[in-house]
Design a protein around this nucleic acid. Structure first.
Lengths: 180, 180
DNA sequence: ATCCCATGTGTACGAGCGTACACAACGGCG
DNA sequence: CGCCGTTGTGTACGCTCGTACACATGGGAT
């Protein structure tokens, strides 16, 4: 019999959900699969998250925080003399390096907002957060365009299986940034 | 009892699959739901498409052809004096106008390639087709960047529920196109 | 000390799913 | 004409799913 009133229970379930989505995709996400992965009874997942949407919201939010931390560490408010386009291109390269599981996981949750209105606010938050990270380096319109272009470039790589071309990314990202 | 050896049977099933995805999303796609929508017996869908992946490949390919036709009609090889960025921005606006069901449908099938390798070649074909449509107006690198940026802009609008801003799209698309 | 409710657990139900498979009907071919 | 493979159909099996619900438990409020 497990300990009661476990404050980590919720977190355990979210972590398990992220692992499940990473391994089997959203299609493989269910109360039962998460319960098995987290090694908790079925009733526990349904108690903390009435619907799978709620669980996905929590998972997406947590995944976002992870990426935001990476971005802050690498592309944060450092000096403005470095080439922003090159930095972002390198950031994408580092993210895609090795296996693409992590990137696929985050994009799958992110893109799930297309059909699940509950996820849209979280997806919007993510974009806003990145824009804010870039706000010290460029204007808001450019920042938003950079986010859009990065999304598109990453999707081209992920959806078609094409290898990531960092030089190409640096080139076209640079075009979006106003000269000066 | 339905007529046998119906050459339209396959097409009927694909059309029904597209309607089902448009209404309920990929999550609602099953052999049974398609069979009901197409008004054919269950065995008929499983006979023509052993797996749902096969059915999605056919549906995505058919949806692609529809968009390619629209693009060819509007953004085809017309004279190069018109503003390409403005044309593409207007094209996206027209596509999003009214209800977004059609766009959501195509993007959902397109994005499904993230987790379904069977769809990747079709997704790649789509990108290549658009690049080719643009080949008369600009260089290949720019064309690919425009496709990426359009994907990103459309996704921003679809995922966050933000209204589409055509002036913004025209602005940033124009930045990607080399002066001259 | 007692009560109460948030938290946690186990089990069962009905629905929908992919799959398999036996059978029916057509049409080309020998 | 008669055979046979392609195409089409009906049904049933076993599985997983969300959901519901009754019950257990323990800590905080009274």
């Amino acid at each position: 019999m497990a300990r009661r009133h476990d404050p980590e229970r919720r977190r355990r379930i979210i972590d398990a959900a992220i692992r499940v989505v990473g391994r089997s995709g959203i299609a493989g996400l269910s109360h039962r699969s998460v319960a098995a992965e987290a090694d908790v009874p079925l009733g526990s997942t349904t108690y903390h998250f009435k619907t799978l949407d709620e669980l996905m919201v929590a998972a997406l939010r947590q995944a976002n925080e992870g990426f935001a931390a990476v971005l802050a560490a690498r592309g944060g408010p450092q000096d403005a003399r470095t080439d922003l386009a090159a930095e972002l291109a390198a950031l994408m390269g580092a993210w895609l390096a090795g296996d693409r599981t992590g990137v696929e996981l985050e994009y799958e949750l992110y893109l799930a907002a297309l059909r699940r209105p509950a996820l849209r606010p979280v997806a919007a938050e993510w974009g806003d957060a990145v824009v804010e990270q870039l706000s010290g380096r460029t204007d808001p319109v450019t920042a938003r365009a950079l986010v859009a272009l990065m999304d598109g470039i990453l999707l081209q790589a992920l959806l078609t299986g094409t290898p990531y071309d960092e030089a190409y990314a640096r080139d076209v990202l640079g075009r979006v940034i106003p000269a000066g």
